[in-house]
Amino acid sequence: MKSLKKYFAEGLGTFALVLFGCGAATIASVSESGPEGIGLLGISLAFGLAVVVMAYTIGPISGCHINPAISIAMLAAGKLSAKDTVGYVISQCIGAVAAAGLLYVIATGSSGFAMPEWGLGSNGWGEGYLGEYNMTSALVTEFVFTFIFLLVIFGTTAKNASPLMAGLAIGISLALIHMVAIPITGTSVNPARSLGPALFAGGMALEQLWLFIVVPIAGGLCAALTRNIFLDD
Results as ranks from 00 to 15, higher is better:
38 I>H: 11
4 L>W: 14
71 S>P: 05
61 I>S: 02
46 A>H: 08
217 I>R: 03
106 I>P: 02
59 G>S: 04
155 G>P: 06
89 V>C: 13
133 Y>I: 08
109 G>V: 06
206 L>V: 03
129 Y>V: 14
91 S>P: 04
168 L>N: 04
167 G>E: 08
122 S>V: 09
31 S>I: 11
137 S>M: 08
76 A>P: 01
21 G>T: 04
169 A>F: 02
72 I>D: 01
52 V>D: 05
135 M>L: 14
114 A>T: 15
178 H>I: 12
187 T>H: 06
77 A>N: 08
73 A>C: 11
75 L>S: 10
112 G>S: 03
184 I>W: 06
69 A>S: 14
168 L>Y: 03
197 P>S: 02
10 E>F: 02
203 G>V: 01
66 I>T: 09
67 N>M: 05
151 L>G: 14
193 R>T: 03
66 I>P: 00
85 T>D: 08
107 A>M: 11
10 E>V: 07
89 V>D: 06
225 L>Q: 08
53 V>I: 13
89 V>W: 01
42 G>M: 10
138 A>K: 06
170 I>Q: 05
37 G>V: 07
230 F>C: 13
207 E>Y: 13
99 A>R: 09
118 W>D: 11
91 S>D: 05
174 L>A: 09
99 A>N: 07
181 A>T: 11
15 F>H: 03
160 N>D: 14
92 Q>W: 02
82 A>S: 13
152 V>F: 04
165 M>L: 15
222 C>D: 02
209 L>E: 03
66 I>G: 04
180 V>P: 00
24 A>T: 07
60 P>F: 01
230 F>M: 15
123 N>Q: 09
121 G>N: 07
88 Y>H: 09
124 G>W: 02
12 L>Q: 03
135 M>Y: 11
224 A>G: 04
151 L>M: 14
216 P>S: 01
120 L>A: 07
2 K>R: 14
18 V>E: 01
34 G>A: 11
43 I>Y: 01
131 G>A: 15
101 G>D: 05
110 S>A: 15
212 F>H: 09
160 N>A: 14
161 A>V: 06
217 I>P: 13
21 G>E: 04
178 H>G: 15
210 W>S: 12
95 G>I: 12
68 P>M: 00
206 L>S: 05
188 S>H: 01
100 A>S: 15
53 V>K: 07
125 W>N: 04
68 P>Y: 00
213 I>V: 14
160 N>Y: 12
125 W>S: 13
80 L>V: 10
33 S>M: 12
56 Y>K: 06
193 R>V: 14
37 G>P: 12
43 I>G: 02
72 I>V: 15
18 V>A: 02
161 A>E: 06
99 A>P: 11
33 S>Q: 15
32 E>T: 13
103 L>Y: 03
204 M>R: 12
151 L>A: 06
125 W>L: 10
16 A>S: 11
47 F>E: 01
135 M>P: 00
125 W>G: 09
92 Q>H: 07
64 C>E: 09
153 I>H: 08
27 I>A: 08
232 D>A: 14
190 N>P: 00
193 R>I: 07
31 S>R: 15
128 G>H: 13
24 A>W: 00
54 M>H: 01
90 I>V: 15
46 A>G: 14
85 T>K: 05
46 A>Q: 07
188 S>Q: 03
107 A>I: 13
74 M>Y: 10
214 V>K: 10
3 S>F: 12
11 G>W: 01
25 A>R: 07
72 I>T: 07
188 S>C: 09
136 T>K: 06
57 T>L: 15
137 S>E: 10
